[in-house]
């Protein structure tokens, strides 16, 4: 294992400037659960780790009263999201995902920002956030910028972030009323899984009807990055949400997926599961909309 120095900046700007002064030989670290494994295995060999845990920003979790948007700091742990009643009650699609990431021990430490930056194709944390049209605030030496999460990923381990940039915040815009979302991670055992496939569905219904006003169908492990399946989404908009239309959306999503064979699962099976789970998550969306309305 390569030896490294651990730097502890106290502000965001200090972190960025430390990164600049160790150009190419430093990486940021938050919870460190992924970074540590990669260093141990030799996949990463930095001279410096720059800790983001003490920069004083990125730990916020709450709804902006003016905009109604949900703000999740980049340093918020999965466990904080899992145990937040705000997330559980108002954003169950996020709760679905975060409660099944790693173990309690991992979730106590690992951050949502780290999960996004890690950019694995499964990215459990990202799938629901993409469905919610989340944007990512990124800070670097050139200042702050905002990127739609759906455009954040470029490939396995690849994002739009420039060297030295930091995910400070994820912002989920206020969702229209009559919106329901659900995510399922599909694996071989009940916990400690990387998914064979991950499926997130978010549906907004028109007022007073079962007609779909907006749909998001997002997939993990269906392509080199998390993806939206636009053809399936477009298909649903304007249609009654029924078992049939959800089935059809499932088929379209399966066709649009670019699943592959790997040690973890076969392509044909993954495609089948996209079809099945899009339909099931769609049904769950409807249930959740009804439950919310019944309150």
């Amino acid at each position: 294992m390569k030896k490294f120095k651990y730097l502890i900046p106290k502000t965001l700007d200090e972190a960025v400037s430390l990164n600049q002064s160790h150009e190419g030989s430093a990486i940021y670290v938050a919870g460190g659960t992924d970074v540590m494994v990669k260093i141990k295995s030799g996949k990463l060999a930095p001279d410096y780790l720059i800790s983001l845990k003490h920069i004083g920003v990125g730990s916020q979790l709450g709804v902006n009263r003016e905009t109604g948007a949900l703000h999740i700091g980049g340093l918020v742990t999965h466990r904080t999201l899992e145990t937040s009643s705000l997330i559980r009650l108002q954003y169950p699609i996020i709760h679905d995902a975060v409660q099944r990431i790693g173990s309690t021990q991992i979730r106590n430490v690992a951050t949502i920002g780290g999960n996004l930056v890690n950019a694995v194709p499964s990215a459990d944390g990202a799938i629901p956030l993409i469905a919610l049209d989340a944007r990512v605030n990124i800070y670097g030496s050139a200042g702050e910028r905002t990127v739609d999460l759906v455009h954040f990923f470029e490939g396995p381990g690849q994002t739009v972030m420039d060297r030295g940039e930091i995910v400070t915040e994820i912002v989920v815009p206020k969702q229209p009323s009559r919106t329901g979302g659900a995510y399922q991670k599909f694996g071989r055992r009940a916990a400690m899984e990387l998914p064979l496939i991950g499926v997130g569905v978010l549906i907004t219904l028109e007022e007073g009807s079962n007609r779909c006003a907006k749909a998001r169908i997002t997939l993990g492990v269906a392509a080199p990055t998390p993806i939206r399946t636009l053809s399936a989404e477009r298909y649903l908009v304007g249609k009654e949400i029924t078992e049939n239309t959800l089935n059809e959306a499932g088929k379209l999503a399966a066709e649009e997926s670019r699943v592959r064979d790997s040690v973890r699962g076969l392509a044909w099976y993954r495609r089948e599961m996209v079809e099945v789970l899009v339909q099931r998550m769609g049904v769950k969306c409807l249930q959740r909309i009804k439950e919310t309305e019944a309150l």
Binding site: M36, L49, V109
Partner: peptide, 8 residues
């Protein structure tokens, strides 16, 4: 609870 093997 944390995994001490991954905790700096």
């Amino acid at each position: 609870a944390v995994n001490s093997c991954l905790y700096f």
